[in-house]
Design a protein around this nucleic acid. Sequence first.
DNA 1: TGGACTTTTGGAACATGTTCCGAAAGTAGC
DNA 2: GCTACTTTCGGAACATGTTCCAAAAGTCCA
Lengths: 226, 226
Amino acid sequence: MSGTESSRGRTGRPPLTSREQILAAARRIIDRDGWEKLTVRRLAAELGIGATTVYHHVRDREDLLIQLLNQHADQTLSPDLPAEPRERIVAAAVAIHDSLAAWPWAAEVLTTDGFLGRLGESALRMVEAVVAGAVDHGCTPEQAVHVFRAIWYYTVGEILVRTHSEGRRPAGDGRPAFFAGADLSRLPRLAALGDQWPALAARDTYREALRAFVDGLLAQATATAP
Amino acid sequence: MSGTESSRGRTGRPPLTSREQILAAARRIIDRDGWEKLTVRRLAAELGIGATTVYHHVRDREDLLIQLLNQHADQTLSPDLPAEPRERIVAAAVAIHDSLAAWPWAAEVLTTDGFLGRLGESALRMVEAVVAGAVDHGCTPEQAVHVFRAIWYYTVGEILVRTHSEGRRPAGDGRPAFFAGADLSRLPRLAALGDQWPALAARDTYREALRAFVDGLLAQATATAP
DNA sequence: TGGACTTTTGGAACATGTTCCGAAAGTAGC
DNA sequence: GCTACTTTCGGAACATGTTCCAAAAGTCCA
């Protein structure tokens, strides 16, 4: 006897590595060394396998990250949401946002083609919540998808900009003026704001604008087809 | 006599290459071979210089792309916008959006840290238009920045998702179902949509949702501090 | 026992962005 | 002319994601 009991009825060389081991090693690296250190070669080294072997258990680096993200979503996203449609939409969007914001390396895969289709069930429940909330508020299914997509784009943009501007001092540091080198006489409002811009841009206003967006989208939808 | 007249009063080895030449060569490569072919080595080869020399005239690949983008913005963004505040905001946002959508490789630099601060004047005029429109509508300067940031995030997200999903067939092709592998019994709304999702997601709804967003933001701002 | 087939493994190689460091080519002052 | 100094140039090298291809290690059937 040579193979373990799970190798029954299976042909081919028995695997020495599993997808779960790879995901676990990736999580270990992220937790221990920081997520910038998660490279394919390092991941392979952590497991004592060749770098190219990783590609037999995971399609891409992207694929790896999406699976890690789904695991994170399973542990983070709470399934209970408010019953009232508008609040339900807002709460689901905020849940998605906060989950992504706490997982900065999600930025690398957020815009992958077909990203939504590769989400796990906990994440999809939030999508469902937004769509269902919109329908319950009186939207048609098509309008509900429209509502979700708009919120999704806004969320993606916020997360991406936020992630890439992490590590910046909130107030003026490097550059002398924020809009340096431009003819400020033609930009009176920006000129008047002056150095306040970085401070204002550092504020977390996701929720506030989200509410405005949801209000606007729902009003628009129910006005178009009441 | 050896140096040209512009090298008067300058010390050091006279440059054989200029930033303008590099930008021109980059544009040439993009137009001729497609923007995926724009690599640092290829760009250097196009000019007959060493790859590392490029880095003496341009800080980064990012830097290069931002400068190209600013040139594009100068030729694309029209300076005349509607006078009415709300329409002015919408028109400026649409101008930014369409300009970026026509420049797909902008996606690589859109989320660069301090991106807005590195924009050229034509682009900043659009930022100014949004902020000024918000102020003219009754917003405080702080609220106006908030309005702009929200619109900016939404626009960035739309552009990035759009860019990365380019080249997809609008209707069902590869994957059997869009939300495959998930327990659809808990996702009734998504299940009901079924295969319609890809078609709905392929629609260009930027303008429509933008209007809703602007309406919601302006209403929220004037309600908070009338 | 032995061939056919299948799956896993991993070394070599490639293109990419980027940094290091030394060489080249000028000017400035003596 | 000679020595400093400054600026530009570019080859070598590195880390990265990824693909190619051949070897390894099993099962299955005659």
